[in-house]
């Protein structure tokens, strides 16, 4: 599904040049659940952002579903993103001015789904993440675990083929964290490809394969199943 080769990303600030990704090559197959691990600053988030089409690489190739997209412009990337990729962040990133229902509804609005259909789909995923009873609350009125479940609901409501999660449990206690991991595992079992960055060995065990990174390169890969 994803095939990156010799991917490079360099951040340039006034004087410093940081090589965040250094000739990185990874292949991820459809239906996989991959965990990315590594010390702080090794380039995990950078990788995820590029995989998620939020950022573009400086060099290298990025083939997504058989298409080379490394040179896509912003509009093309946005188009591809909204139909194929869902995101879950460490800090939830819900819009404070919108209710739970409206937050989850958002991706459907942007892909142009009809109102009646939207309601049905949103209710369905809210049911799945067990947050239905809070559908008219605002994010600030929810606990961290609940907010992250809403974020997961939002990531999957569009039935994306790929979910990218950057430390989804980073701000959660272990029981809330486990709930979210169960959710992701379920989604994966239904066929969604998942790439997850995490610092937790415990969470990494939910995945099929662990990619370990250091200084913008992969060092080892552990295959768990």
């Amino acid at each position: 599904m994803i095939n990156i080769t010799n991917l490079e990303k360099v951040y340039r600030t006034d004087e410093v040049e940081t090589i965040a990704l250094n000739k990185l090559s990874i292949e991820i197959k459809k239906g996989e659940f991959v965990a990315v691990m590594g010390p702080s600053g090794c380039g995990k988030s950078t990788l995820l952002n590029i995989l998620g089409l939020l950022d573009d690489p400086d060099a290298g190739s990025f083939v997504f579903n058989g298409t080379e997209i490394a040179k896509y412009n912003e509009r093309q990337r946005a188009e591809l993103r909204k139909h194929n990729i869902g995101f879950v962040f460490q800090s939830f990133n819900l819009i404070d001015e919108l209710t739970v229902f409206e937050n989850v509804e958002l991706p459907l609005i942007y892909t142009g789904v009809k109102a009646s259909e939207r309601k049905q789909k949103v209710d369905e995923v809210l049911e799945k993440v067990q947050i239905m009873h809070r559908r008219n609350h605002y994010p600030q009125q929810l606990s961290g675990g609940q907010q992250q479940r809403v974020a997961v609901a939002r990531a999957v409501v569009n039935n994306p083929k790929l979910i990218l999660a950057d430390e989804p449990t980073g701000n959660l206690d272990s029981s809330n964290g486990n709930e979210v991991m169960e959710l992701l595992t379920n989604l994966n079992e239904q066929g969604t490809t998942i790439i997850m960055v995490t610092h937790s060995e415990h969470d990494a065990r939910y995945s099929h394969r662990i990619i370990r990174m250091l200084d913008g390169q992969t060092v080892t890969e552990n295959i768990l199943i």
Partner: peptide
């Protein structure tokens, strides 16, 4: 800014 970021992540185009 955060709102803009999120909207873009979930599929908003610049135009919208």
């Amino acid at each position: 800014a955060k709102e803009v970021g999120i909207r873009k992540v979930v599929g908003a185009s610049k135009f919208s």
